[in-house]
Amino acid sequence: MLTRDDVLAAQERIRGRVRRTPVIAADPEAGTLWLKCELLQLAGVFKTRGAFNRILTGLETGALDPATGVVAASGGNAGLANAYAAARVGVPATVFVPETAPAVKVARLREYGATVRQVGREYAEAYLAAVEFADTTGALFCHAYDQLEVAAGAGTIGEEILTDVPDVDTIVVAVGGGGLFAGIAAAAEGRARVVAVEPTRIPTLHSALQAGQPVDVAVSGIAADSLGARRIGSIAFDVARRTGPVSVLVEDETIAAARTALWQDYRMAVEHGAAAAYAGLASGAYRPAPGERVAVVVCGANTDPATLG
């Protein structure tokens, strides 16, 4: 079971390995909305926190053979995080991505020194290939979201928010496989509510909460490269049942508009998945009460700037 204690342990383990990203007031005069600028994280993605926590834990426990290294499956961002962390720690990384992974992410994976293998059209197919590779070679498998160390590492974002804005009422996060949500919800449990925002075309958590268990969903839409898990992770589902998040859905058009707004209003160049959380507010899918203090996690910058208006 993922708890705040796991998050605090991760915070100590990865200290000095990742950036402590800033929390900025969206409107300093209003004082009710903050943006957690996780797009400034190393490798441009929040997953770097969980990757370091997983890899360093593997070295501590002996589960990671430095000669064999690590393997990950990813729509792009988890691969980037693990490739970066592995390079910094000094172990090899192999990353399986779908054939649909954005070229900008594949290029960066290779820049970080990872061996890249493109398999299938969806994350699920790359995942199966990565698991087989781990079984065959003995490489340490680093899940994109559904491992305790990975989710706990992501949860350090919540700790930072609650340190910088201790009276925050609500933290808004995007959900794909659920590692970010799970970590932040565990960190914030009893201290702040969490709003989980998903694309209507990939409602992994929303569907699981309705069904009472994780279920497969179709994967499509503009945020599929980063939020394109086929089902919510078991860790995230367990945390959701325990903490009772607010679950909302947003349309692709709203995500695109939120991404444009983040660029035009704050000069934040983010990918569509990272704009989903902001879309939850901008669209009115979640409407804060008067005076409610809200922090939005802006979590990924691995995008092509040429596509920004």
Rank of each mutant, 00 (worst) to 15 (best):
G76Q: 04
R19K: 10
G58A: 12
A63S: 13
A81C: 11
V18T: 08
Q41R: 00
R20G: 01
K36C: 02
N53C: 00
R15Y: 12
G58H: 09
T21N: 07
V71W: 13
I24P: 05
A25Q: 13
G50F: 07
P66M: 03
I55W: 09
A43L: 09
W34K: 07
K47R: 04
W34C: 02
A43Y: 08
L33A: 06
T68Q: 15
A67C: 13
A26S: 08
C37H: 00
A78C: 09
E29D: 13
P28M: 07
A72W: 13
L56A: 07
L42N: 03
C37W: 02
T57P: 02
A73V: 12
A51Y: 11
L56P: 04
T32Y: 12
G69Y: 10
F46L: 10
L59T: 08
A81R: 06
A43F: 11
K36F: 05
S74C: 12
A78T: 06
I24H: 01
A43C: 02
R54P: 08
T21F: 02
Q41K: 00
T32A: 14
G76W: 03
G76N: 06
T68R: 15
V45Q: 00
G75A: 11
N53R: 00
T21M: 04
T21A: 01
G62E: 06
V18H: 03
R54K: 14
K36I: 05
L33M: 12
A78V: 11
N77M: 07
V45A: 12
I24M: 05
G31R: 10
A43G: 07
T61P: 09
G79L: 13
G79Q: 09
G31E: 02
T68M: 15
N77I: 10
S74R: 13
G69F: 14
G16K: 01
F52Q: 02
T48G: 03
K47M: 02
L35K: 01
R20S: 08
D27G: 04
G31V: 03
G58N: 14
T48V: 14
R17P: 04
D27N: 11
V70A: 15
L39M: 09
L35T: 03
N77D: 00
N53G: 05
F46R: 00
P22R: 03
